[in-house]
Amino acid sequence: MSGLKHIWLIFLLPIMVVQNAFAQTSKVNKAIELYSAKKLDSAKVLINEAVQSPESNKDYNAWMMRGVIYKELYKTNETNNVTSPYRDSATVSFIQSLQLDAANKNPQKDLVLKSLNYLASLYHNDINKTLDTVNYQQCLLNAEKHKAIKRVIDPAFNEQKYSYDVYSTIGSMFEKGFEQSMSKTLLDLAKTYLMKAYDINSNTDFINKNIGVLYYNQAVDIIKKMDYDVPLDKLPIYQDQSVAMGKQALPYLMKANELNPSDKSVVEGLAGIYYLLNDSEKYNEYKKKFEEMNKQ
């Protein structure tokens, strides 16, 4: 992106000439000069004064310039900050510039769009940096910011699909965390986010498989964690809980199998569920299928 600053300068010079007659726009011009001289903090002060003034707060050029300055401030100071306020301000400014240019008169509109696309990519990339059980809320925030930009600049953007990807990724991450720690909090979060993804699109083998496996593993864990000394009058309680969980897993893994019959791990999971449910006929059917798939 280093060349972009020069591109901006080429396009910003005509703005300075056109707006020279006005007091507030002279603040914009001054901000452009300071930006060119790499005096970004001073440029920031002036451009903020300009966009707060009645003369310029409806000026798409002023807001565009604010976006340029804040983007540069982000690149200079906050590239490793996933919560960067400079980046947020740049985003808000470019979007404001676009919205003020309802008549589509801004000759630099394409650069505004490119900048917004760049900022959207940064938000998206930062999702991965905070994809953990502690910082996941930041993940969601950055995903929302990515979506907010895309909504404005990309009519073809499939927001539902994007949300599905984000929720299923976060849900899977919690599922992994739960399997490693057996924490109920992580389990609840895994269910929450996997179900959010499922509510958006219930017709993927991925989401059905993950939800099915989550329930199935819980069913297994109930018996696995059961004390070997459990009194026989308490044993049915554990069995009831485990069977109930296994029954919850079944429709999801059946659907996953329907959507992707070649996924061996789903077939193995189905064999596991039927074994857990003491259905030897179905268990043998899926076990045989799994063994045949392994031979291929």
Partner: peptide
């Protein structure tokens, strides 16, 4: 029966 663990993270383009 074996316990099945999926450590399966969705595909993310960027």
């Amino acid at each position: 029966m074996r316990k099945l663990i999926f450590l399966f993270i969705a595909f993310f383009t960027l």
